[in-house]
Computed example of a mutant assay.
Amino acid sequence: MDRWRFPEAPPYEGAHTDTVPHLTVGHDAPGHVLDRAARTVSAHLPIPAAVENVLLISGSQEPGSWRTVATFPLGPRPTG
């Protein structure tokens, strides 16, 4: 079995040999805030989930500017 489902389109154009899907919970906050967030989130892991759609969002530094540009459903295409 191929390492990637779509080997002709590796993540980050193949720039990295190992990628791990992840969710960023905190960024650019003081260390004690990030530590508390890590402890809080860790207590609820793993999170069972199914991903049905991928959203393409776009925005700027301006508050409230982020909008969904497109939604891409995952899985089989509906017939009919």
Rank of each mutant, 00 (worst) to 15 (best):
T19W: 14
M1W: 00
A9Q: 13
A15C: 02
D35I: 01
A43S: 11
W4F: 10
E13V: 14
Y12H: 14
G75C: 09
T68E: 14
P10W: 08
I47T: 06
H16F: 15
F72P: 03
P73V: 04
H16W: 13
P46K: 00
A70C: 04
A38L: 03
P78G: 05
S60K: 01
A43Q: 09
V41Q: 04
E13Y: 06
S58Q: 13
P46S: 04
T68G: 04
A38T: 08
V51T: 11
A43T: 06
D35P: 03
P7V: 00
G14D: 01
T40M: 05
R3V: 07
P30Q: 05
A70T: 04
G59S: 05
A37V: 13
V41E: 03
G64L: 00
A49R: 07
S65L: 01
V51D: 03
P7D: 00
G31Q: 05
W66T: 03
Y12P: 00
R39F: 00
T17G: 15
Y12R: 13
P78V: 03
A50R: 15
P46Q: 02
H32V: 00
P21G: 05
P48C: 07
V20S: 06
P78D: 11
D2P: 14
T79Y: 06
V41Y: 05
G80P: 08
D35Q: 14
V69E: 15
P7A: 09
F6A: 05
A43R: 11
I57A: 10
S58N: 01
P7Y: 12
V20A: 05
G14W: 11
G26F: 05
T71E: 15
P21N: 02
A37F: 02
N53P: 01
P10D: 04
E62N: 12
P10Y: 03
G64F: 01
D18T: 13
A29V: 14
L74G: 10
G59W: 09
R67T: 08
W4T: 10
P7R: 09
R39Q: 11
A70K: 13
G31V: 10
V41H: 07
E8A: 13
T17P: 10
L23C: 11
T17F: 12
